[in-house]
């Protein structure tokens, strides 16, 4: 106890860390709506693919599958609107809204990707980035973005199946013959949903681990939008380099 002196005795005259707004409010709103939509979509999707409850009584007194499907469709609408909102924000947002994006034609992105991967393999954490590092950017592009396109297109195509010539079928119905029929479209929709779950687990793990190890406000940044950086550095000086 006698050791408690220096750090708590007095605040340093100059701050050691400064903070910057990294995630603007549209990004944070999108993130949490997206997370909520994902949880709802995954759970309702599990039920739809393998319905486990069997309500008693007559069919006219129950609407279990009907309500679960309706919930799935509402969450899907939230997911889809959020998805395109986030894509718009890629251009409308600050520099961090584009961070980590696979600019495969830029050598800097590749260097960042190799270094970050190498650091993780050595059980290290790499440089502190304000936005996403290249590896994170690649993961986000592969699962929520490309996977999101797959889910939205297959989902709307299957949604439109009940009304051929309707709006959704005209928009997305071409997906079904392309994938070799309705059943295969269901299969892809289902398989990619599991990729989202795997992504979510790894995402939460890395955020908690990185956030607690680097103590730069990574976890709280998705609420406050702010992250910390050493006062003697320029903010985001390690981003994409």
């Amino acid at each position: 106890m006698s050791q408690i002196t220096a750090p708590y005795a007095a605040a340093p005259a100059e701050p050691i860390f400064k903070q910057e707004l990294v995630w603007q409010w549209p990004i944070r709103l999108f993130h949490w709506l997206n997370a909520l939509a994902f949880v709802v979509l995954f759970l309702t999707g599990l039920y739809i693919s393998d319905p486990i409850f069997s309500p008693a009584g007559e069919a006219y007194g129950n609407q279990t599958m009907g309500y679960v499907r309706m919930t799935h469709f509402i969450a899907a609408a939230v997911f889809t609107v959020g998805f395109f909102w986030r894509i718009c924000w890629f251009w409308l947002g600050n520099r961090y809204a584009r961070s980590g994006f696979p600019y495969v034609w830029r050598a800097r992105w590749w260097r960042n990707l190799v270094r970050q991967t190498w650091d993780y393999l050595r059980l290290d954490f790499g440089h502190v980035h304000m936005g996403h590092n290249a590896l994170a950017g690649l993961a986000y592009t592969l699962v929520p973005v490309i996977g999101g396109w797959v889910m939205i297109l297959t989902g709307l195509a299957l949604f439109g199946q009940s009304n051929p010539d309707g709006f959704w079928d005209s928009l997305c119905g071409w997906v079904i013959p392309m994938l070799g029929g309705g059943l295969r479209t269901h299969m892809w929709h289902h398989l990619v949903a599991w990729l989202f779950l795997v992504f979510a687990i790894v995402h939460v793990y890395i955020v908690v681990l990185d956030g607690t190890q680097q103590r730069n406000g990574l976890i709280s940044s998705m609420i406050s939008g702010r992250k910390f950086y050493p006062a003697d550095e320029k903010p985001g000086s390690h981003d994409e380099d």
Binding site: S49, M187, H190, A193, W194, L197, V198, I201, V202, Y205
Partner: peptide
Amino acid sequence: PQKVGIALTAAAGVGI
């Protein structure tokens, strides 16, 4: 896909 998905999820847990 359900079995593949459960296997992938378990693999992620083991990896973590």
